[in-house]
Write a protein that binds this DNA or RNA. Structure first.
Lengths: 124, 124
DNA sequence: TTCTTTATTGGCTATTATGCCAAATATCAA
DNA sequence: TTGATATTTGGCATAATAGCCAATAAAGAA
């Protein structure tokens, strides 16, 4: 792959990677409802505040969230609402994946000798 | 975060994580144009075929791509075309991020003493 | 069968990510 | 100024990823 094309995909991948963590997806979802300070998000997530702060800095650097200082608090808000459009697709895929797993397990019961199926099922 | 909610975001994050790599984003983009075998994708990406094969298995397990055996070749196709909807948003964000970086650098020239700006600029 | 091509898997190392604690910073109140 | 609260950063241990080579498997051709 040529360097300039590689760079294009690299920039995009950085953003996807920033969204590739359950806590960070939760934060995006929550900020789509209302702005939140770090302490509120920390309370909801149940991790150390330093951990949540680092998640937020990753989202910030990716340009997904933005912040504003209010007194001693940092209020975070969603800076790229277009990422909310990902969620519908994600939910559909999760549903499809679960069905695939169940089908696979069922198939394994029906045809226990099916090597490919057993192999596929091991992945889930 | 409660366990069931955590699990919901975990499932979604797995899919986002699968998309969080330049070669894998390239593969999705390429498969949106036409089905491809591993050897073709390997040629385009320019990595070891085992590396590309592993990328494909990650996309497969996430339910993003699907495959079909044809002779000695494996033909991969896009199984979840809805992910293509992510690209427009990604491109917009990349553009915005670049502008932010440039603005930051310019601001640093205009006001060299601005600590916050210098700090922000260091991130890019 | 044997050889060739295509693809996957195992194993290894290097790099990166995660999450906690402790330390540093900033703002506001007493 | 001192203290309390909110947040970020540094440091560290552990876990997960990435990518190469070598070995294996599967299909078709000779």
């Amino acid at each position: 792959m040529k360097n300039d094309i590689r760079d294009r995909y690299e920039s995009r991948a950085r953003i996807m990677k920033a969204l590739g963590h359950p806590s960070r997806l939760f934060i995006v979802d929550e900020l789509s409802r209302q702005d939140r300070c770090v302490c509120e998000l920390t309370e909801m997530i149940g991790a150390d505040i330093s951990t949540v702060s680092k998640h937020l800095s990753i989202l910030r650097e990716a340009g997904i969230v933005d912040y504003e200082k209010r007194g001693t608090q940092m209020h975070y808000r969603l800076a790229a609402p277009c990422v909310l459009g990902f969620f519908r697709c994600l939910e559909d895929m999760v549903r499809t994946n679960v069905q695939r797993q169940m089908h696979c397990l069922q198939d394994d019961v029906d045809r226990p000798g099916n090597a490919q199926c057993t192999k596929d099922c091991q992945r889930y």
